[in-house]
Design a binder for these strands. Sequence first.
DNA 1: ATCCTCCCCTAC
DNA 2: TAAGGTAGGGGAGGAT
Length: 685
Amino acid sequence: MGRTRLCSRKKRDRKTEDDENGFGGWGGYMAAKRAKLLDQFHTGGIEKVSNIFEGVAIHVNGLTKPPIQELKNLMAAHGGVFHMYQVSSTTHIIASNLPNVKIKHLGTVPIVKPSWITESISFGKLLDYRRYLLYTNQSSTQPRIDFPILEKPLATKADNASASCSKATKDNEISENIEENLVNTDCVSSVSADSTVLEQKSRAPTKTAADPNFLEEFYNNSRLHLISTLGAEFKQLVGQMREKSNGKFPGKENLIFTKGKYTNHILMNSVVMHIDMDCFFVSVGLRNHPELRGKPVAITHARSGQISNRPDRKINRELEFALYSERLPEGAISRIDAIDANASMSEIASCSYEARKYGIKNGMFLGQAAKLCPELKTLPYDFEGYKEVSNTLYKTIASYTLDIEAVSCDEMYVDVTQILKETGLTVEDWASHIRNEIMTVTGCLCSTGFGANRLQARLATRKAKPAGQYYLQADDVEMYMAEIPLADLPGVGRATLAKLRNLGLNTCGDVQVASLKVIQSEIGQKAGETLKEQSRGLDRRPLNFHHERKSVSAEVNYGIRFKTLDECHNFLQSLSNEVYSRLNDIGMRARCLTLKLLVRAADAPIETAKFLGHGVCDSLTKSTTSNVIINDPQIIYKETKSLYDKINPVFSDLRGIGIQLSKLEKIAPINTTLSNFCGRHDQAN
DNA sequence: ATCCTCCCCTAC
DNA sequence: TAAGGTAGGGGAGGAT
Ligand SMILES: Nc1ccn([C@H]2C[C@H](O)[C@@H](COP(=O)(O)OP(=O)(O)OP(=O)(O)O)O2)c(=O)n1
Ligand SMILES: [Mg+2]
Ligand SMILES: [Mg+2]
């Protein structure tokens, strides 16, 4: 009712813009935008222009001209397949020159010069590769070396401890299959290296949010921004693929054909798979650094565990840290205990399992990690690599089923009931197959967990990691759960954990027998109920294949330092533009706007411990719900500014700013009575 | 009761 | 030096 009125009203209010864009034009634009996302997904961002290499699967060995990346793009553009490793389905090896010793090992697959590819493209058709053989005397009787099969026997309750040992062996096998020409030690650093030696050049002036291109620069370097936006994209993508699906699943068909078994599954309970890349960012980085396999490695911006000895000014961190500790939730774990005056506060995005043995964790400050493990090596970020591997991961799973709930760029839930039924495979065989395939096409390891619901699948993955698989079967659930530490449950973070510990609860077994009322009084009604169920392995939430966005936001809590009010206003304008652009991208409008500010806490020092960080802050929000639909950057700015003035902070104390839009409505919902009404109404005007 | 606003918490 | 984002669930407490 109210919606209808608002809908027609907003069309009139925005008439000028609608005339410019055109209602049909909008639909067309959004359709094109969606098509582009799908298309980029299918080709990994490369537009497909021909099918010259249909049926061809290359593996590049050694240095080539054009280089490997180029060849990979060419294959994508011309209908071929690129293999990171040589596997049984690899049809050609591309190489410019190879030592004799190596040729012996490559077996029966033809070794072809890269010019075969480039010239085939020039001619517009697939040329006979035999005219491009690198050597003509290849033996046809050499045994072929396939990629090592990733079979880790399904872990049982007893052999959990052996997991990491068998993994080390596998890593060694893997590194032998990686080309040494890709080794690039330039960007590898040891955390114990002296940063003053590494960095002699004079410092550029500090870039803060007051600088004109700050927002772009920041987003280009923010891993959290990257994983957030990638995650949202994959949720959207699953929906789009389901809408567009022709019901064919080539991966599944192929699997039925090659490994399918006839099995009488009279009555099969549904099986949920959870799949998650192992130390995702590290895995991607290691593809080009085989020499670091098996070593403790972390992905960070900083290269050394110590900050330079002569920063322009020595900052006293003690005051801030004291305040931080004071404000920690009672009993929660501190992040700064090992951070002294010179320890780096650059965050570790991902660390290898070898690093985890030292107690290093994702999200830990590098300075603390370096103390735990002085041999720790760091690698820089490779955002393009993460995007590529994520795309390949989703593309691979989507060739079997679209019953996918995207969780993040390296993780999803999949209903595999149908796949198991149609292929007749056991859970174990399916798991080995899909893990092997993902390793083959991405060069990265992943782990999978299976269970009757998402919680069981999620916990099974935890047990499976790294490079493993585990099926938590119905009969085992009760016993299995009793031993699980509460910290392993999704939804139990540091604050909840501290509260539960204060109640003397540490494992799911403890919660199973504890009083619901007592738990609820500590952590809340709903959370208590959920926790009770989780502790017995129950989870009633079904997988959600369709995702509907409820809010859109943009926030920056780094580099916020304003010397004038003008600088602040300019940044609010930039952020308004940014959040508008995101709203526009998903074809929505909003009725509610929330401004969130981080303001330096009263006793917190002006200079933060972390370079350009936010330090200890108070968080303040204010929101407006208006009848006027928010669909214009100037409206967003005007509302933002007005909320800002209501909060009225000291602008020089600002340390973080965010704008969130909620109460969203679709601009042009298709195939609904409402949209038909709006559309006709709009055109009639 | 139910809704709204301003939080807090969690997961990647 | 360093790039501490983003979306969703949910609770407290006041307004309706
Ligand atoms: N605090 C964090 C947590 C995660 N990530 C990024 C880097 C991770 O590689 C990626 C995936 O997160 P996961 O929780 O899946 O962690 P990993 O894949 O690194 O390790 P695991 O093997 O435990 O899944 O997200 C991050 O930047 N900062
Ligand atoms: Mg992972
Ligand atoms: Mg993950």
